[in-house]
Design a protein around this nucleic acid. Structure first.
Lengths: 233, 233
DNA sequence: CGACTCCTTGAGCAGCTTCAATCGATGTGG
DNA sequence: CCACATCGATTGAAGCTGCTCAAGGAGTCG
């Protein structure tokens, strides 16, 4: 779950045959759909957790802030991702939408008991476990990868998850700004921009505007994401 | 759970009134105690997940490796921590002991269903959620904190969790090497060593050998872990 | 006592950040 | 319709943090 530089994001699809819309609407906590405008916040760090959400469309952003303003983007939530897992009883990130989004809400209790829906329970649990796994990949990236490797990894994951096929190539439209990418990868805006430029100049990607990325050389991107530039594995 | 530069690690104690030893020993997968010598591996990345473990004593280390040998220590597992959450069906880290350890084993199915023990189920679920939260703190550290802040954060967490009170001061004995700390914090051995020296020279900590750390100035360590050195919050 | 391992310290360097200017796209008002 | 303001992205130049390479110290074990 989440775009977290992982290998596998299949949790939602694995258990995704079921739809919350099928469950009876017992109360207003199981809202079938929540709409969220780009820039609007779904919750803030410290808010009590009442619901979990599955992103249905659009993209949301989970962030944490340090007192002095430094920001870390924890994850981008794409359709299929489950967000809002509680820490104790509170949210431990802020969450807002970077593009207009729709979300399915689940009552928090569904995570603990399933509310009589074992399949839902299993789905939420699997999502939590996948998230742990994905975050561990992210650790490796933040702790041990160079700027070029991070950007290549980021693009590689997005290409695997969200690319449109245009002719022979894959293409994605980035809903997030360079600042978001920088705060996700632990870099600065300028470094991210320079890495994009370097990928473009080396013929690995093409850019159409700053938000649309066309992947020209899949193997090279993959190689760069794993650091073959310095010493081949 | 885990030492992951978090604020709160209470999951084990919150639900910790119960003891697996009370549950009947249905089969050999619910081994009450597994012993692990320092340096021995509990599992490797890719191994199928058959059990979860609760660290009873000692300290274990969860690591991931990149092909070229770069290493990231994902977490240190201290007593009370639950380790071995599956990603899909496989372990996504290596796990070995850095000091002789004892572990309680739980069947993996306890995570999904509780195996008829709802309290155990809740405990494992809470542990997983706590882990997600702790990892998010770790993200902030790896992505946005300076070397000095990382080392101070690391020591601060250990002091909160594991300190012995010796006279007016708190003291910890580090079971892990500088290399482990470096790979946990995304730094090099040399940088970690220099940060320890700087903390010692500024009177915040004292060292007795390289493994024993005495905390002399709690407030200063805390301040440094949050970066007040550059601009006061 | 010597070999080994781990830690510490130093010097130089590289990669990323910081600071700053420019470019391009978008939107607004005259 | 165009001038201008604004915001994000890009590019350049300089500086700093942390890394690399290297040597020496401290503790341990044979």
């Amino acid at each position: 779950m989440y775009v977290t530089i992982s290998t596998d994001h299949g949790s939602a699809s694995e258990t995704g045959g079921m739809q919350i819309a099928d469950t009876p609407l017992e109360d207003n906590l199981n809202t079938p759909t929540t709409r969220l405008r780009a820039g609007s916040y779904l919750y803030f760090e410290g808010d009590p957790v009442e619901r979990l959400y599955e992103v249905a469309s659009g993209v949301v952003r989970l962030t944490r802030l340090l007192e002095d303003g430094r920001r870390q983007v924890i994850a981008f939530g794409y359709p299929g991702d489950i967000i809002g897992f509680p820490a104790g009883d509170c949210h431990h990130t802020d969450c807002d939408a970077i593009s207009d989004a729709k979300l399915h809400a689940y009552r928090r209790s569904a995570l603990d008991t399933g509310n009589g829906d074992p399949a839902l329970h299993a789905k939420l649990l699997q999502a939590a476990l996948k998230e742990i796994s994905a975050m561990q990949d992210h650790f490796m990236m933040l702790g041990r990868k160079s700027a070029a490797e991070r950007v290549a990894s980021f693009l590689s994951v997005l290409m695997d998850r969200n690319a449109d096929h245009v002719g022979a190539y894959r293409q994605i439209t980035l809903p997030m700004s360079r600042a978001d990418i920088a705060d996700f990868l632990g870099l600065t805006i300028e470094t991210v921009s320079r890495c994009f430029t370097a990928l473009r100049k080396s013929g690995i990607i093409a850019l159409d505007g700053s938000q649309t990325v066309i992947l020209l050389d899949d193997a090279a991107l993959r190689a760069q994401s794993q650091g073959q530039m310095k010493e081949a594995a």
